[in-house]
Simulated assay, not measured.
Amino acid sequence: MKSKFILLMLCCAGFYAAAQAPAAKKTSGNPIFPGWYADPEGIVFGDTYWIYPTFSAKYEEQLFIDAFSSKDLVNWEKHPKVASTADFKWAKKAMWAPSIIKKDKKYYLFFAANDIQSDQEYGGIGVGVAKKPGGPFKDHLGKPLVDKFYHGAQPIDQYVFKDKDGEHYLIYGGWGHCNIARLNKDFTGFVPGADGEVFKSITPEGYTEGPFMFIRNGKYYFMWSEGGWTGPNYAVAYAIADSPMGPFKRIDTILKSDPAVARGAGHHSVIKHPTKDEYYIVYHRRPLGETNGNHRVTCIDKMEFDENGYIKPVKLTFEGVAANPIK
């Protein structure tokens, strides 16, 4: 009799625990993880989604980069301080806008540091290398890869683009100017073009910062942020061309503030499901009522195309996206 009573109590306890347990998340929600984070780059490695954002704080506090991973876009795991100024002795502050790519079984993390304002200051775009996407990333060069204002572009907001032929390009630039340069095989420098020029300007109309590029149906989609990052006019626009070198003619704005949801939506990246024609835009925005410029959160929403291949305007949501695991 006693054993039956114990069994009954255990069953009751199990039912009570199940009733009290929080319901499983059906969507990612926006923001997708807690904390002030901006400039997110999303990417897929194997069967896992990864996001590498800027820690959104005062420049003097931006001394590290966190990463986040997910198997389904809904549940995210934090990987703290995958890179920090402790391993990049030249980087003193303002570690911004990480961009990552896998090559030859290694992971290369590009980032900007020090927010240099002229060629006389030391800093710019650096490169870290690691054996795993979660780091730790160590200094690949011992110095910045780009440390000058070529064509007027501040060396920030770097994106590493892999072309169809396997060549890699660095696309970057702030202060209203964007450059592209072909990386060499070991990511220690650049390969000059046929005209001898290393950095080629591809700045489209309206460009401010935050470039991103991807290929769909043989076309090169070039995207960027416009407006001021602390203001409500921050937005994402795009162009389409037949080459990563352009020319890029602005088509439209596809991501912007929504007075019912959030302000300052911008500095994005794009994640494509590896086996489906399904795309997601990962971006930051400022919650309504927030006045601190650094109070930005990372969000994700669907990005869709019309029958002509043009990007449809993205709807900002609080729900985010549903689970979409990689089989």
Rank of each mutant, 00 (worst) to 15 (best):
L288E: 00
A262N: 08
F214K: 06
C299G: 06
D258S: 10
A265S: 15
R216W: 09
H267P: 13
D301V: 03
A239N: 09
Y221E: 07
P259F: 04
T298L: 12
E290M: 03
H268Q: 15
N217Y: 05
D258R: 07
F214V: 04
A260H: 11
D258F: 09
Y283P: 02
N233S: 12
P232D: 13
V297M: 04
E226R: 13
Y279Q: 07
S225F: 09
A262F: 01
I251E: 15
G227F: 07
R216L: 09
R296D: 02
A235M: 13
D258C: 09
S225Y: 10
S225L: 09
R285N: 14
R286L: 01
D252F: 01
S269Y: 12
L288S: 01
I271A: 05
A260F: 00
I281C: 15
K219V: 06
A262Q: 11
E290S: 10
G266N: 09
A235E: 12
T298R: 11
G289T: 03
V236H: 00
G227R: 08
Y220K: 04
Y238K: 04
N292V: 04
F248T: 05
C299Y: 05
E307P: 00
K249W: 00
N217L: 06
E307H: 08
P244M: 01
W229K: 01
M245I: 01
F305N: 02
S225Q: 11
P259Y: 03
Y280W: 15
T253G: 03
W224Q: 02
P232I: 10
Y283L: 05
T298Y: 09
R250L: 11
A235G: 07
P274N: 14
N233K: 14
T275Y: 12
E304M: 07
G266Y: 11
V282G: 02
A241H: 08
P232L: 01
R263V: 10
D252E: 13
L255N: 08
E290F: 00
Y234V: 03
E304R: 08
H267E: 08
C299N: 13
A265Y: 04
I271F: 08
G228F: 10
H273Q: 14
V261S: 04
G289R: 04
T230V: 03
V270A: 04
I271L: 12
R263I: 09
R285C: 13
E290G: 00
P247N: 14
Y283A: 05
R285Q: 15
A239W: 07
D252M: 05
K302R: 15
H273M: 14
L255W: 05
Y221R: 06
W224Y: 15
I254R: 00
Y221G: 09
K219F: 07
